[in-house]
């Protein structure tokens, strides 16, 4: 068993994560400057090229006419946004390097405890945003996503950090690569959707705002959930397969399993509400936020407040 820890790499990993927090914050400032001094979108209007293929929900129905913003953006503000994008890519690389060095230091998959898990989820959320940014004009989200990532990493560093080391025998399985990775990827996407949903509630339609219209925000949230939901389903099933291997049953209503299931049902309810029941707008967004709350409780709360089979996740007290 690999019990040896490469201390040099482990320290490097910790430093990289710290640097990543600062870089995300710097990027956030850049995005925020662009938001604050960039152009203001007038009522219910979004720039024409907004979200070309995000799959405009009923894009056939939405009015095509968009009022052009009157105030031109300050050129330096736009530049700040561009710098922020570069910074967030650097932060992303730092985050990735931090994860890789941690994994190399302990010679295992670097998501064996809560600290590593939260770091990886922040990385997934940043990745989801940056990848989507290459295809969609969603730079306005940058400030909020980088802030979330910085807060998440900061929380992990301050409250969850444990020394790099080997994990419990229960985690010696290739399923950690499959189950936890799927959980991380889908959580990252759900966080993106959650950020959009919260912005939706903040954004008031009919008033000029630096944010895109509510419809656009809802569409991004919906798209992220549509991508993430099958991955989450897969993560739950992979978890069941692993449980079958490790604990002698594929489903035993362990608290983590219960809340993974509750989260799944809540997001399924959101998809049904939006697709079939025809709930649009606020009602659907609130259902998605309830689901997001379940997800967060499952990721963090279950490990901190409830003891169960998943409590080897190694939360420092």
């Amino acid at each position: 068993m690999p019990a040896q820890v490469n201390e040099g790499l482990a320290t490097l990993s910790d430093q990289l994560i710290l640097a990543t927090v600062l870089l995300y914050l710097a990027a956030m400032i850049g995005y925020a400057l662009e938001l604050a001094f960039g152009r203001v979108r007038t009522a219910a209007a979004a720039p024409k090229r907004e979200l070309v293929s995000v799959g405009a929900g009923g894009g056939d129905v939405l009015p095509e006419s968009r009022t052009e913003p009157e105030a031109g953006p300050a050129p330096w503000a736009v530049k700040a946004g561009g710098v922020a994008v570069v910074l967030s890519w650097i932060a992303w690389a730092g985050n990735l390097a931090g994860i890789l060095t941690r994994g190399l230091a302990v010679d295992r998959w670097p998501w064996g405890n809560m600290y590593e898990f939260v770091v990886a989820i922040c990385f997934a959320a940043a990745t989801a945003f940056l990848v989507l940014l290459t295809r969609q004009p969603i730079r306005f989200l940058g400030a909020f996503v980088t802030l979330t990532a910085a807060l998440g990493l900061g929380f992990a560093v301050l409250f969850l950090h444990v020394q790099a080391g080997p994990v419990m025998p229960a985690l010696h399985s290739y399923w950690i690569a499959i189950h936890v990775t799927a959980a991380i990827v889908s959580s990252g996407l759900f966080i993106l959707a959650g950020v959009c949903a919260i912005l939706y509630l903040i954004r008031k339609d009919g008033r000029p705002s630096v944010l895109p219209s509510r419809a656009d925000l809802e569409r991004i949230a919906h798209r992220a959930i549509v991508i993430s939901f099958p991955i989450w389903t897969f993560a739950v099933i992979a978890g069941a397969l692993w449980a079958d291997r490790a604990w002698g049953r594929y489903w035993g209503w362990d608290p983590k399993e219960v809340w993974a299931f509750v989260t799944w049902v809540a997001y399924a309810a959101y998809l049904h509400a939006r697709a079939t029941a025809g709930w649009r707008g606020k009602a659907a967004i609130i259902v998605s936020l309830v689901a997001f709350g379940c997800l967060l409780f499952n990721l963090i709360g279950v490990n901190v407040f409830i003891s169960g089979l998943h409590s080897y996740a190694d939360v420092p007290h």
């Binding site: 209503w253 362990d254 608290p255 219960v258 809340w259 049902v265 809540a266 399924a268 309810a269 049904h272």
Partner: peptide
């Protein structure tokens, strides 16, 4: 069906608490 699915999820919560 949706309400029952919701109840199913809700009903499992005390099992975790």
């Amino acid at each position: 069906a949706l309400i029952l699915l919701f109840l199913f999820a809700l009903g499992s919560v005390p099992g975790s608490l």
